[in-house]
Design a protein around this nucleic acid. Structure first.
Length: 269
DNA sequence: AACGAAACCTGCGCGC
DNA sequence: TGCGCGCAGGTTTCGT
């Protein structure tokens, strides 16, 4: 469940529950979810959680001298349970705290990754250092200059976290609909005004999605059993065959670079 | 260098 | 009922 609004939702809930908790033990059930570049995860034992931040789709757990970087990829989730509760299927790492609770990393498809680094190494981290700014902070002209260098479709470009960070398939589809831009339009053909519309739409949509605790679709829940409500506001994503909210046309579904892309051919020329 | 495709995984829904 | 296929909110790695 991971695009920027969902990741921020996870962070704010975990922060509420876990701040200042001290880790007393860590159980690693499926070691592969820990990045091979990671420091020994057991360095976190006896450390207190100081803060949880996010950057794009990354969660950053701040433990004074260390930062635990977590990316949920497709299906990573966190649950807080009693430390003695039985270990369920797909729970891969369990952090146990001094107060009888535990934080469990659950990931059906095992795509997510966790990496422990020293705090000072954050800016040189392999994944994080390549990340572009989030739509809230990005400079429109810088983004425009990057986009017009690309000859791939704008839909694909919006999913590139080194160009703009935080958008995934749902919000990229929604942003292009809101901006009235055809998802196939090539980066090199984009105008400055269209890039501006994309950034403004992204800010508007992400903010509303954050307020709604993200999007919950395909029947599964977010972290900690919190369900988002942004699915009520979706205009095109998963809406193939439904009517466009601005015109009479049907929303259609196509593949762009292997990802399902939903749009209105009439409104998004 | 840049791009598309495959790889990484599991579970669900659908058609036959 | 059972099987095979396609599909899923993402990123990295592999070929060309």
């Amino acid at each position: 469940m991971p695009e920027l609004p969902e990741v921020r939702t996870v962070a704010s809930i975990l922060k509420k529950e876990l701040l200042n908790q001290k880790i007393t033990a860590i159980k690693v059930i499926f070691p592969k979810v820990i990045s091979k570049d990671s420091l020994d995860i057991n360095l976190l034992i006896n450390k207190k959680l100081k803060d949880i931040k996010t950057y794009g789709k990354y969660l950053l757990f701040d433990y004074d001298n260390y930062i635990l970087i977590s990316h949920l990829r497709m299906e990573g989730k966190y649950f807080i349970k009693n430390k003695n509760d039985s270990i369920e299927k797909h729970e891969h790492i369990i952090f146990i705290f001094n107060d009888n609770t535990s934080l469990r990393y659950h990931d059906t498809r095992k795509f997510g990754r966790i990496e422990l680094i020293k705090k000072g190494e954050l800016s040189k981290n392999k994944s994080l250092s390549k990340l572009a700014l989030e739509p809230f902070d990005i400079d429109i002209n810088d983004l425009y200059q990057k986009i017009i260098k690309k000859k791939t479709p704008i839909k694909t470009i919006l999913l590139d976290q080194t160009i703009i960070s935080g958008l995934g398939n749902i919000y990229a589809n929604e942003v292009l609909y809101n901006s009235e831009i055809n998802p196939f339009k090539l980066g090199k053909d984009m105008t400055f005004n269209e890039v501006k519309k994309i950034v403004n739409s992204a800010i508007k949509i992400l903010n509303l999605a954050i307020l709604n605790k993200g999007t919950t679709i395909r029947s599964y829940m977010g972290a900690l059993n919190v369900t988002g409500n942004y699915q009520k506001y979706l205009k095109v994503h998963m809406k193939s065959g439904k009517k466009c909210s601005k015109c009479h046309n049907d929303i259609i579904k196509v593949k762009i670079n292997g990802r399902s892309t939903y749009y209105c051919e009439n409104c998004q020329k």
